[in-house]
């Protein structure tokens, strides 16, 4: 295992050393003293294991494909944004836009995720151990979000496909978001995922999906569109 000390170094310098280590075949890298720097471990295109010991700033692990990244601390905006595959685990809380636009892989936020978690997801899975903020799942196109705590306002607003499972209370549903019961099969899969990442969740979850009313423009439903826009 290679350890990289971030103390006193620029982000570019740290990321170059990280990429060079991975490029030369290192499978397990640990970053210490990240001190909430932005853009750490972005665009990692192998399944190397990276552990960051401490808080990270914006966009950590973004645009990666295959990475197995753990942040032992909190994360700022856009953690794991545009992830293609692999897994990113944040042990603390995450800022706005966690797992935005991911196409695959699994993002786990063990604490709370702030506003716009999982917006425009095009696949993959986002697991939130605590609560999620405003507009979580907005315009989601595919994939799954599991929220063990409470759902924030405008939850699952204007979704295409994809589902949001919520264990706690929902502050307010977004436009065209419809609640239904979770099937036994879905519930089993949720609990298997939670167990795998050591996240404690409730026994039951509600399922929120698109009502598909906004999929097509209908002049007879102008009011619904006015509300959504």
């Amino acid at each position: 295992m290679r350890t990289i000390d971030c103390h006193g170094r620029s982000v570019r310098d740290i990321n170059v050393e990280l990429k060079t280590a991975i490029g030369s075949g290192e499978r397990d890298v640990r970053l210490v003293n990240p001190d909430a720097r932005h853009n750490l471990a972005v665009a990692v295109l192998t399944d190397a294991r990276i552990t960051i010991d401490g808080p990270v700033g914006y966009y950590c692990g973004g645009m990666s494909d295959g990475v197995r990244l753990t942040v032992r601390g909190s994360a700022g905006w856009g953690v794991a944004e545009c992830l293609l595959s692999g897994e990113v685990v944040v042990e603390g809380n995450a800022g706005n836009g966690a797992a935005a636009s991911i196409r695959g892989g699994t993002v786990v936020v063990k604490g709370d995720a702030a506003a716009r978690a999982g917006i425009a997801m095009k696949g993959g899975r986002l697991v939130i151990g605590g609560d999620c903020g405003y507009m979580t799942g907005f315009m989601m196109q595919r994939g799954r979000i599991v929220v063990c705590g409470n759902g924030g306002p405008a939850l699952a607003d204007s979704m295409y496909e994809g589902v949001v499972f919520v264990g706690g209370e929902i502050a307010e549903l977004g436009n065209d978001a419809v609640v239904s019961d979770t099937t036994a099969e879905e519930l089993a899969e949720i609990h298997a995922t939670l167990e795998r990442y050591g996240v404690k969740g409730p026994d039951a979850f509600r399922k929120v999906a698109s009502g598909r009313k906004l999929w097509n423009y209908d002049t007879k439903e102008r009011e619904a569109w006015k509300a959504a826009l």
């Binding site: 001190d35 909430a36 720097r37 932005h38 401490g54 808080p55 700033g57 914006y58 601390g73 909190s74 700022g76 603390g92 809380n93 995450a94 800022g95 706005n96 604490g111 709370d112 702030a114 506003a115 903020g133």
Partner: peptide, 17 residues
Amino acid sequence: EEIALHAVLGNGYRARE
């Protein structure tokens, strides 16, 4: 930015947005 919190609190805190 959390970087400003870390600069004065070290590691003994839990940040939230």
